[in-house]
């Protein structure tokens, strides 16, 4: 199982749909994608994690890195996730306080604060 990434634009948001496993091997691909988006001027990102089967701390590190990058441009990084086993990892690391986590892409795209 590798990592799959696809991006699309919805209004002023860029939705990054992630699938597969985000771990120490695949996380650099996600990091490159986020860096590239920010370098190209996409500062409002929605990372859709509904297709993610596995996430570890390396993946969390990449998401935090992405958040830091968009915040440097007064942007935002929102997550879409309903999977309990993925949400649990955000909870035990305290990152639910750092990332806005939404139940749907529509919800994340509509969110403003």
């Amino acid at each position: 199982m590798d990592l799959s990434l696809s991006t699309r634009t919805v209004g002023d948001r860029t939705v990054v749909e992630v699938g597969g496993e985000i771990d120490v091997y695949t996380a650099p691909k996600l990091r490159e994608q986020l860096v590239e988006l920010v370098n190209d001027g996409s500062y409002h990102l929605v990372v859709d994690m509904e297709g993610v089967d596995f996430l570890d701390s390396t993946g969390l590190g990449v998401l935090v890195g992405g958040l830091k990058r968009v915040r440097a441009h007064e942007g935002s990084l929102r997550l879409v996730c309903n999977q309990e086993r993925i949400l649990k990892i955000f909870r035990i690391t305290g990152l639910t306080k750092v990332f806005p986590i939404h139940t749907s892409v529509d919800d994340a795209v509509a969110a403003t604060d």
Binding site: S57, L60, G61, V62, V64, G65, K68, V98
Partner: peptide
């Protein structure tokens, strides 16, 4: 909150 440094990955 951590960052991308190896140290903080290790801590996380």
């Amino acid at each position: 909150a951590g960052d991308e440094a190896a140290d903080s990955d290790d801590q996380m």
